[in-house]
């Protein structure tokens, strides 16, 4: 970690925070609610509530990650916290966003295919959540890749 720059460490921090959300989601859906009936009507309600909860949870985890990471980075490296975005950051941001949107799009299409093949609704909802979280992870990994390898 010592030879990593601020931007690379930040990408790792965001990737970790997304992984935490993935673990929380998996525990909530597949462990605490594994006994729920597979009735499509209750499935819609359950996943509706879960998705409504996961979006603010993701925002809160990201804000906390941002604060904790910046405090820890300033304390450990004694660097000034005046990090700003320049042209390289913007170029990397655009490419990472493109990769994240493409990942989400693939997941969205797969979830629609699952419905076309008459699979149960929980397959579609899990694919949608998985594509959203995968998109977020791809965003962080793309950042890390472009900062380390360049383009």
């Amino acid at each position: 970690m010592n030879n990593m720059t601020y931007q690379e460490k930040r990408s790792v921090a965001y990737l970790t925070s997304t992984l935490i959300v993935v673990v929380i989601y998996c525990i909530y859906v597949f462990y605490f609610n594994s006994e729920r009936s597979l009735n499509p009507e209750t499935d819609f309600k359950f996943y509706g509530i879960t998705i409504i909860l996961i979006l603010p949870a993701m925002i809160i985890v990201n804000i906390l990650t941002h604060i904790v990471f910046n405090v820890m980075h300033t304390m450990l490296t004694k660097e000034k916290g005046d990090h700003f975005e320049d042209e390289l950051d913007k170029a990397i941001e655009l490419r990472s966003n493109r990769n994240a949107y493409n990942t989400f799009l693939i997941g969205f299409l797969l979830s629609m295919i699952s419905q076309a093949l008459e699979m149960p609704p929980y397959v579609m909802f899990n694919l949608l959540v998985a594509s959203f979280l995968s998109g977020s992870m791809v965003w962080s990994i793309s950042h890390l890749y472009f900062y380390r390898k360049g383009f």
């Binding site: 720059t5 601020y6 931007q7 990090h83 700003f84 320049d86 042209e87 390289l88 950051d89």
Partner: peptide
């Protein structure tokens, strides 16, 4: 710019 950009 940032030091990261000069480095790259």
């Amino acid at each position: 710019v940032t030091r990261q950009t000069i480095m790259s």
